[in-house]
Amino acid sequence: MTLPFPEPTGPAAGRAEVFVRYLDYFREQVVAKVAALPEAELRGSRLPSGWTPLELVKHLRYVELRWIEWGFQGRDVGDPWGDRHGQRWHVVPTETRQELLDALRRQGAHTRTVVLSHDLSTVGAPSPRWDGAEPPPLERVLFHLVQEYARHVGHLDIVVELAGGPLGE
Rank of each mutant, 00 (worst) to 15 (best):
I68A: 02
V160I: 08
H118G: 01
E69I: 00
H85L: 13
P38R: 15
T94I: 05
T94F: 06
E161P: 01
R46D: 07
L167G: 11
Y62N: 15
T9W: 12
K58R: 09
G132R: 10
A32K: 06
P126C: 05
V77W: 08
H110M: 06
R105D: 06
R15F: 00
D24E: 13
A103C: 04
D131S: 15
L60H: 04
A36S: 15
G74P: 05
F26G: 02
V114S: 02
A150R: 09
P80N: 12
P166S: 14
L116K: 02
G14S: 04
V92C: 01
G164V: 11
S127I: 06
E134L: 10
E95K: 12
E39W: 00
R84M: 14
P126R: 12
R84P: 02
L100Q: 06
H85Q: 14
R106K: 10
G168D: 03
H110T: 15
S49K: 12
P126F: 08
L56C: 08
V30L: 13
E64F: 01
G50I: 09
P38G: 12
G164M: 09
E41G: 13
F19V: 01
T52N: 06
G165I: 04
V153L: 09
A35D: 15
L104Q: 03
H85N: 13
V91E: 04
L54Y: 05
V153G: 07
A16G: 10
G14D: 13
A13Y: 00
